[in-house]
Simulated assay, not measured.
Amino acid sequence: MKQSDLLVFNSKGIYCPKAKVYLDPWRPVNQAIITHGHSDHARYGHKSYLTHHSNIPILKHRLGDIPIQGMAWNEPFQINGVTFSLHPAGHIIGSSQVRVEYKGEVWVFTGDYKDEDDGVAVPYEPIKCQTMITECTFGIPAFKWKPQAQVFEEINQWWQGNKEEGKTSVLFGYSLGKAQRILKYLDSSIGKIFTHGAIENMTEVLRPQIQLPPTNLITRETKSKEIQGGIVVAPPSAHGSTWMRKLVPYETGTCSGWMAFRGARRRRSTDKGFVISDHCDWQGLLKSIKTSEAERVICTHGYTDIFSKYLREIGYDASVENTDYEGEADESSNSTIQEVS
């Protein structure tokens, strides 16, 4: 990168020198613009936070009483002469892209994003720019998502089959984003929906923003017979824990983009894998970049080398920058810290 660039990467995060503000910094800074509430993008310790209004309850739930300001979608605001605005990223509730403009030069930092409208997050909005900083968590051709309606039909059929066999269905998904997307499309006519404490706590934070079916929190007082035949939504950290004992007999399922890989289900020791992700697949990434009309693309986390090489082959000025963002893998690796209750 050049020192004259509007956004640069340093040891603390993505920095705008002209505005003296960071985007999703991974070390404490004075002023931070936060794209969304996942732990790899929203860290504790900054002196001030700015994010979309709908992300504020999430950040306060995860980070406590922090100094925070909320902005609306497409609402320009200036910091030291640089114009910023937040735009829907479609990743999870409250997720934003950050548009940065100075003297006619426009950069966009996507944060994490997906181009499929999931009916939960505000849909992804393409933004015209000269330079795009994009994730590429699933940036190889092997990743191609089915329409989510098809996946949730598979999930509900799986639940129905397990119920007929007298088994409880246990679905693993991250407490923020994935879990609410799962809950939104479960067919409650099949049976009762139960939740792990980490899922329930985050879902209660988000209920004012999205219509979700009734859920039943599993507590120490919950009897095994009450759960049998129902479906339980739990974080990955619950898999293999003593918390699972009262769910016996059960079948397990994991909701993740990584389930597209042969062998991923076996490595995670889960009975069933459902390919559902809150990130773009290969075609979604390429489509989003093309729609942006960007000439320069900076790839951050994921299959950066493969994806940037392909972009160069088809005519883009593409490069790679290292960050502390790890996309879907990050939420899994941090689940033992964030989601045990």
Rank of each mutant, 00 (worst) to 15 (best):
Q148R: 09
S277E: 05
N322Q: 13
G191A: 09
M244F: 03
H52L: 05
I79R: 04
E154R: 03
I93A: 04
W282Q: 02
P214A: 15
T168W: 01
E101S: 09
Q130M: 12
D324C: 13
E154N: 10
L86Y: 05
I218L: 02
Y15K: 04
I289E: 03
D5N: 06
F77Y: 07
G166W: 06
V248H: 09
F274W: 03
F84A: 03
E154T: 08
A42K: 03
A42Y: 11
S335A: 14
R99H: 04
T219C: 07
Q148N: 12
A198Q: 04
I66E: 04
N10M: 04
E75Y: 06
S4N: 03
R312P: 14
G64R: 12
Y310D: 08
I93M: 06
G315Y: 11
M259G: 02
T323F: 10
I306Y: 14
K290I: 12
K246H: 08
E200F: 13
H91F: 13
F172Y: 12
E165Y: 11
F77H: 01
I227F: 01
A260W: 06
I79T: 04
I56N: 02
Y174S: 15
G315I: 13
I79K: 02
D65N: 15
Q180Y: 04
L285Q: 04
T270Q: 07
